[in-house]
Amino acid sequence: MSDLSYDEWADAVREGRLLGLACSCGHTNGSPTAACPHCGSRDLERVDLPTEGVVHTETTIQVPPATFETRGYQVVVVEVGDARVMGRVEGDEVDIGDRVTLAGTIAEDDDHPAPVFEAR
């Protein structure tokens, strides 16, 4: 079984690092699971993902859920190395294909951190 827990992943995000799990099948997971979601292998290698990447897709949310006070925030899926990670964008809005870099975290949701990216 992989040795990367959610708590370790979240602690790393708070420290400005992105952890993933690489599988010999070629898939790298941007969020911890006990086994590779694509091939089922439990032999996964913990890897440090790059903190710079490319926007894979994005949207700006104008109708937020309760607990999120401010509307108009951008959510992105970012390609970081061989993995993808979901996060927020702060500062200038970005488009698909733009380069972004990890710039911090937000914790508006019961202390669950989300990575924050900004345009390079």
């Binding site: 897709t57 949310i61 698909i96």
Partner: peptide, 21 residues
């Protein structure tokens, strides 16, 4: 719960991400 909701993602947001791509 851990890897999507903390960004403030909503269901319009989920399908917006897929559709934008």
């Amino acid at each position: 719960r851990q890897y999507e909701q903390p960004t403030g993602l909503t269901f319009p947001g989920v399908f917006a991400l897929l559709t934008k791509r």
